[in-house]
């Protein structure tokens, strides 16, 4: 299947979903006014990927900021991945946050508490 690549903008993150490698990356910021529009193609891609996933699916979330509209869409994305977990693929999430960014660290912990897939919390100097 085709990979999904979207260039980041002032309001949307860079998306690099690689079906062959089983790696899904979101990087940058996610603050669109209506995030549903932006996240719909990502959900569709994951649906298609779920039909024949890699043995391991690695999700890298490297977000600097996200708005509350996106937070709901990100949760839905995790729920979708939770549904795939154990069905031909093992899903793991790497949640990156910048040093001292407690807000982003807490946000990762909150998703971890809601979603039943393994999370790695990774502190980096700069995203």
């Amino acid at each position: 299947m085709e990979n999904l690549k979207l260039e980041g903008s002032a309001k949307t993150p860079t998306v690099t979903f690689d079906a062959g490698g089983g790696t899904l990356e979101l990087k940058g910021r996610s603050i669109p006014e209506n995030s549903v529009e932006f996240y719909k193609p990502l959900n569709d891609w994951i649906d298609a990927y779920g039909a024949s996933p890699k043995a391991v699916t690695t999700v890298d979330i490297k977000l600097e900021y996200f708005n509350t509209s996106s937070s709901k869409c990100i949760l839905d994305l995790f729920k979708q991945l939770e549904g795939l977990n154990g069905k031909g693929t093992e899903v793991k999430v790497n949640w990156y946050f910048e040093e001292d960014d407690e807000d982003m660290e807490e946000a990762g912990e909150d998703y971890q508490a809601i979603i039943n897939i393994p999370f790695n919390m990774i502190e980096v100097e700069e995203i």
Partner: peptide, 22 residues
Amino acid sequence: RDLYKSVLSDGELSEKGTAGLG
């Protein structure tokens, strides 16, 4: 933080894409 988490996990997005979390 608890309120945010519960609205996030139980709430639905409106047609405008607002989550009630702002």
